[in-house]
Amino acid sequence: MEQNISNIKRLSNPIAYVFSVCGYVALLFLVIGSVYYATVAVDYQWRWFKVPKYFIYQQAITLYAEGYGEIDTIAANKDKVDILVTTDAGDRTYTVPKDSFNWVEGDMVSPGDVIASYEGGWQPGILAKGLWVTLKISFLSTIFGILLGIIGGVARVSDTPVLKWSAISYVEVIRGSPLLVQIMIFYFVLGTTMNNILVMNGISKLPPEWYGIMALSVFTGAYVVEIVRAGIESIHPGQVEAARSSGMNYFQCMFYIILPQALKTILPPLAGQFINLIKDSSLLGMISVRELTKATREGITTSLQTFELWILCAILYLLMTFTLSMCVQYLERRTATK
C-alpha cells in the first residue's frame, strides 16, 4: 500500500528531480570528506588494525610443567596428541595440537618448562560481549517498558482517582528527574535493600544488570504512558460508544477496540522512545554493568586507541538503532489502514 503523504507534486520536472538527488549525493560527500579531512589533519596515529581483536580473538594457551620429571609417552589421539608427563608433582596427560611442542619421549622437564603453547579457539572480544549485554538489556527493558506504559496509559485515562493520580505522579516524577540518579537509586538503595532481603532468605543476590533493566524499564515506561495516553485520546469517541453500546465492558472496549487502533498512531513516537532507550543503556556503566560503552572504555584503557574504539562504539549503536527503526517502519506499513 504505497501512499503519498502529500499529493502536491512539487518536483514534477524529472530534471529537477535528478538535480535534487545529485544535491543529496554532493552533500553526503561533502560531509564524509570533511570528516575524513579532520581525521587526517588531527595529530593522531590511527591504528584500525588493532580494532578487530576487540570483537573476536584467538586465545593464546601455554601449558607449563608442574614439577621435575620426564616426558613419558607421546601418543596420537585423533588429530591431536596426548603427552603423558610424569613428574614428582604427579602424572598428567596434556592433549594438545600436533605442532605445538618440540619434545621427544624421555626428555627431562623442570617446573616452569613450557610443555606446549598454541592458539585456542575463537573468543568473543570485549566489544562483542558489551554489544550482547546492551542488546539484552535494551530488549528486556523495551518489553517491560511497553507493559508498564500500557498499564500506566490505561490508568492515566481512567476516571478512578487512585489509578489516574498514581499514573500522573509516576510520569511526572520519573520523567522529570535524571536517569543517572534513578539508576543509582535503583542499584545502591533499592538494590542493596532487596539483595539483603534475598540473602536473608537464602536466595542469591540479583546481579546489577537486573537493577539496571528495572531502572530503564521504569524510566522508559513513564514516557510510554504519555505516548499511549495520547494514542488512546486520538481515537474517535464514537468507537467507544459503538463498543460500549453493544454491551462490551470497559476493558474489552479498551483491549479490543481502542488499543489496537491507538497502536498504529503511537508506533513512530514509540520507536523514538526505544531508540533513546538503547542509547540510555550506556549509563548502566555507572553500576558496573559492562555494556557497550563501558566495554569501549575498558578497551581504551588497554589499547589507548581512543578514537577508533569510540567511533566503532558509535557505529554499533547506530547499527542497533537503525535496525530498530527499520523494523518499526515495517510494522507501520503492515498496520497501515487497509
Partner: peptide
C-alpha cells in the same frame, strides 16, 4: 448496564465501524 445494552442495538450517524 452491559447486559441491558446487549439487548439494545444502536446505529450511529457516523457508522462508527471498527476500522481495524
Amino acid at each position: 448496564i452491559n447486559t441491558v445494552r446487549a439487548e439494545m442495538g444502536m446505529v450511529f450517524q457516523s457508522f462508527n465501524l471498527y476500522p481495524h
